[in-house]
Amino acid sequence: MISRLFRYDRILWYIVAAVLPLFIQSQSLAAIGEDTEKPVPEFARTEKTITAKLIPRAKSSSVLIDFDTAQGNLTEVKGIEFETLQTPELDIKEFKSSFFEVMVDLPPGTAADITMTSSFFTVSTEYWVYNAKKPVKWANSGIQAKKGTGASNQFVIRVTDGGDLDSDGTANGRIQLIGGPKDYFWSYAIGTLIVRFFGVFLVLSVLMIGMLSIGQLFIIIEKKRIRSAPAPYRPPQSPPVPRTEPSKSPDASSTPDPDTIAAIATALHLHLTPKTSPDASEVKKVGQNSWVQYGRVEIQNARFQTFLRPIKPKNRP
């Protein structure tokens, strides 16, 4: 009974049945998306520049973002968690580094160029700004990232005290710029997916080409080795030995001594027998040669003499 419950096909159906409701009711999945990759920026000041160090979402290594201003005094930069300023139209996955609050002190009503530089920004990164006093709180600053030094890209945002981009909305001698870099999630996810899938093909294709080339090289070397190897030894063709029926009792005067006969027979046997694993039929054919048969008889007789010799006492002098 239990074993029937756990048949391969049934287990699969159990899994499908358990998970199917989730596919049908995808709203239930909203509960899944807890923020497991919350960036926690740390700030350090070097003269006029404040540098944020953080591990953004979808990254395993930390990145640096430099904040600077040409006018006024950059007083503070703070990190703001995504949830605190979230609006329904914002997707957490698109703001990988969360938000920053940049504060610059300057004469009231004047403007400052706030610069943000990082290798984390790409040319397609946008910088979105927040203003709580506007009907649409979040908006694209409309400023394109420019190529900075090395691999970094740079946003230069002109903010006027009390202007649109100043989050406090008043000309009070302090600019408060709240915002964050935005990268479109799906274009990145699908783009990188395609690139990386073909990357796997590329890597294995390069390996294949390498292996094919080396395989060909080995085949050529092997062929050359076979060609240059000395040809196997082939004995010169000797005139055929006249086939004569061996006499059952050879005349002692016309035949050589038994040792010579046995040696010749053995030599002939070895010459005519294939070197490696002859099959039974071939042995039989070779064995039909009269000389060989005679030689074998002689060898056997010699062995018999050993067996038939008189037994001597063990303790002989």
Partner: peptide
């Protein structure tokens, strides 16, 4: 070797599929 690369199709399809269901990258 090319077959070994082609057979990774599911890895990438599943990657996209799970993103739709709220998984992080």
């Amino acid at each position: 070797l090319i077959i070994g690369a082609g057979a990774q199709l599911g890895v990438f399809v599943t990657y996209i599929g799970t993103l739709f269901f709220g998984f992080t990258l």
